[in-house]
Amino acid sequence: MNEFHLTEDQQDCLQELINIAMGQASDQLARYLNTFVYLKVPSIESVDAKNLMETLSQQKNTLAVISQGFFGYEGIRGEALLVYQEEDSGRIADLLGYEPDELSQDEQLIDISSILTTTFLNVFARQIDNQMSYNAPKLLPNVKDKLSEHLQQMPFSWDLALKVNINYQVTDYSFNCNMVLLIPETAIINIKNVLDRILAEF
């Protein structure tokens, strides 16, 4: 336990905020995708740097990782990683409403990642009276060997990461991915302050 770890109250509060954000985000997505989207309550865990490396490196068939930086007021910032498994990516073009020959698989993955990340984080930011800007999403090259390298070469040092498991079930196809929010130390302190403020108001 160090100063970056969330208390039980803070963790509950964050979980609630994320649940609400994910609910609203999926509602927006369902409208955009024009199809019924069944969303399981996302499982959220905060993991430390060492554990994350272990979980991610154990995952087999990792097809792609898309990274996208986000920046808000009050020093809330970080990087979202969307991790896809080989079997989960067959029909993303369908899901997005594109014709398969209109865009490459890389672009499909980048597109859906950007939509998931920004829709979710926009709603989340609104919950905490904030507003986000985003970097262009990018596909990490050769994830099979380079993921741990990428995690070590982040532009900031981070101790805590939030792992959000997103699972969408759409009538005709299933879609799964893991969203990992890497948050730098200073931003964790800022998030804890925001959570404390919300808890105090509650």
Binding site: Q28, L29, R31, Y32, L103, S104, D106, E107, I110, D111, S114, I115, T118, T119, N122, Y134, A136, P137, K138, L139
Partner: peptide, 17 residues
Amino acid sequence: DSVLQLNTPSFCSWQQR
């Protein structure tokens, strides 16, 4: 459409197009 409906930014990189 996604930009208007979702109120989110969207991107297009030279690496894909």
